[in-house]
């Protein structure tokens, strides 16, 4: 009966042992549930074998001036274009043009001869045309996205159409004069 009296006294102050037990039980249950949810959600993030594919190496030795190759990095196409002198000159001239996403060509190409870009339109993820001689390169001589009509220039910068940003420059290093590692 002593316990009952004690509980009554506590209840008078608006706090009971029962309230404490209830709230601490709910708190522990909620924390436990959250701790269970995270491993499940995290399992959807890239797995170790997927992360291990995060670099790609290739050679630019065989790419003729004016043409390009497409390499795959993390499942995405990467455009590597060996630009002509005229294309480089246009790109540098347009550094001062009216750009939606202003960037100089020097920032976008470590070596002016080779432009390396993630070949995914920044609008909704299609692959722009322009890597083959037969494909349209758009009004600015770079790339043209057939899905929604975005035009990119010879530096891969957005010039017209719905895309909000320039074609992304992936992180890359020249391991030698001709070998490149992306990622």
């Amino acid at each position: 009966m002593a316990n009952t009296a004690h509980a009554h006294a506590a209840a008078a102050q608006g706090e009971t042992r029962r309230d404490f037990l209830l709230h601490s039980t709910i708190a522990v249950g909620a924390v436990g549930g959250a701790m269970m949810v995270w491993p499940l959600i995290h399992s959807m993030n890239p797995a170790a074998d997927t992360l291990s594919l995060s670099t790609t190496e290739f050679s630019v030795a065989g790419i003729a001036e004016g043409s390009g190759i497409t390499v795959v990095w993390r499942g995405k196409p990467v455009f590597v274009r060996h630009r002509t002198a005229a294309e480089i000159e246009t790109a540098k001239k347009d550094d001062t043009a009216d750009l939606r996403d202003p960037q100089t060509d020097a920032v976008r190409a470590q070596k002016p001869d080779f432009l390396i870009l993630v070949g995914i339109c920044t609008h909704l993820g299609c692959i722009p045309l322009g890597m083959k001689a037969t494909e349209p390169r758009g009004d600015f001589g770079g790339w043209f996205c057939p899905c929604h009509g975005s035009h990119y220039d010879t530096s891969g910068r957005i010039r017209r159409g719905p895309a909000p940003a320039n074609l992304e420059v992936p992180p890359y290093t020249f391991l030698s004069d001709t070998t490149v590692r992306i990622g």
Binding site: P39, L40, H42, S43, N45, A47, A48, D49, T50
Partner: peptide
């Protein structure tokens, strides 16, 4: 085996 070794928390699930 990939679930056990590579997938995040795959062993636990």
């Amino acid at each position: 085996e990939r679930i056990m070794r590579d997938v995040n928390n795959g062993w636990l699930i």
